[in-house]
Computed example of a mutant assay.
Amino acid sequence: MSIWKKRIKKWSYEVTGIAIGAFIFAFGLNYFIIANRLAEGGLTGVVLILHYLFHWPVGPTYLALNLPLFIAGWRFLGRDFAWKTLVGTALVSLAIELTKHFQAPMAEDLFLAALYGGGAVGIGLGIIFYLGGSTGGADILARFINQYWGWPVGRGLLLVDTIVIVAVGIFFGLTVALYTLVAVFVATRVIDFVQEGAYSAKAAMIISDKRSEIAEAVVDKLGRGATLFSGRGAYTDQDKEVLYCVVSRNELVRLKALVYECDPKAFMIINDVHEVFGEGFRRWPYKKKKGVVDG
């Protein structure tokens, strides 16, 4: 297969996936959020405020507000990401218009509307982000803030969302703003879930004078690898070896029991790990290109 055929196949796969994500996002937005006069964060929230106040159509307004930002931010995005952003924005706008008649008013339980709406929006955006795309809006604004004010992108996104939700509270009341906050929170969590997957692991950092015994037990009884780091205790001013290992969630209890069995005085720190690639865990989601030399 020629390189152009591979590129076309890859592009077709990504555009199809982004289109599916766009329609899931649009359906959740119309069916739950707009039907119950709730809002969203970012530029989507601005579009919904304009829709509720002036009855502007959501799809065309979404596209109209995104295009100037997209043109202004083109040089910050990079060619591939910029094209995917343009495709994602256009498909979301189209999907919103095609699904605008699908609505389910749930005035008796706005919490469920916020919950399901945030979930659907999160699934749609998660698919788009997973494929390397974007829907523009707050992403581009956050990059502008980073470029000219030096703020991290995450802080810029938080600023935009905060301003929008405050505006929702001013125009439509505290109740709508709070339910909107629920929808935004659920959406962000679902986006992370879609991108990272249901799989998660636990990383353990163990400081013990019996690190060799613990490492042997981890390898022999759990079948996991371990790494030793050199360290120095600040209080004792003595050299220490720190044992680091990653296990699946269902192996954590066994790991703690093994550590305690080897050294009840061991110091152990456990952290959540959302993605692990390599032997014994997930495969890398990339393929090595021919002609690339290691080193």
Rank of each mutant, 00 (worst) to 15 (best):
S93Y: 01
A203Y: 04
A257K: 15
A142F: 02
G278T: 08
S12H: 00
V184E: 06
D272M: 05
G17A: 04
G17K: 01
A226S: 15
D109Y: 11
T89C: 11
E14G: 00
F129Q: 02
A26L: 05
T61E: 05
T227H: 09
P60I: 10
I270E: 12
V184N: 04
K287F: 04
A114S: 15
F185R: 03
K289R: 12
F193T: 01
L112C: 02
L158R: 02
L48V: 11
Y13Q: 05
E216Y: 14
V247R: 04
F171H: 12
G132V: 05
Y62A: 10
G223W: 09
R75D: 12
G17T: 02
D294W: 03
T188G: 10
W151V: 10
L252S: 02
I165R: 03
G280T: 12
A72Y: 13
L115A: 03
I20H: 01
L255K: 01
A234S: 12
G233W: 07
D263F: 07
K240N: 12
V166H: 04
Q103G: 12
L43E: 12
I33A: 08
V164I: 15
V293M: 06
V292Y: 07
A138W: 00
L125V: 08
V253N: 10
L159M: 13
G124S: 04
I24T: 02
H274D: 13
T89Y: 06
K288F: 06
Q238L: 09
A114D: 06
Y244C: 05
G118P: 06
P285R: 10
W149S: 06
T89Q: 09
N250L: 13
V92R: 07
K288C: 00
K290E: 13
Y286H: 11
E279A: 08
G173E: 12
G126K: 00
L159N: 00
E216I: 00
L69G: 08
W151Y: 12
I207Y: 04
N30M: 11
P68Q: 11
A187Y: 00
A107P: 08
Q238W: 00
N36D: 12
I128A: 01
L255G: 03
K240V: 08
G73V: 07
E261Q: 15
G231D: 09
A95L: 11
I33Q: 05
L258S: 13
T89S: 14
K100I: 08
V46C: 09
G28Q: 13
H51R: 10
F76C: 00
Y116F: 15
G41S: 14
G133I: 03
K202F: 07
T89K: 07
A113V: 03
D109C: 06
F129E: 02
G133H: 01
D237T: 05
A198L: 14
T162V: 13
I18L: 05
L181A: 15
F23L: 03
V253H: 13
D237E: 14
A198I: 10
T16W: 00
K290G: 03
T44N: 14
V246K: 06
N66S: 09
Q195T: 05
L131Y: 13
D239Q: 14
S93C: 07
G137V: 04
H51W: 10
G73S: 06
Y199K: 14
E279T: 06
V292P: 00
W11C: 00
A114L: 05
G21T: 09
H274P: 01
L255T: 11
Y116T: 03
G225S: 12
C262T: 01
G197I: 09
I140P: 02
P57K: 03
P264M: 14
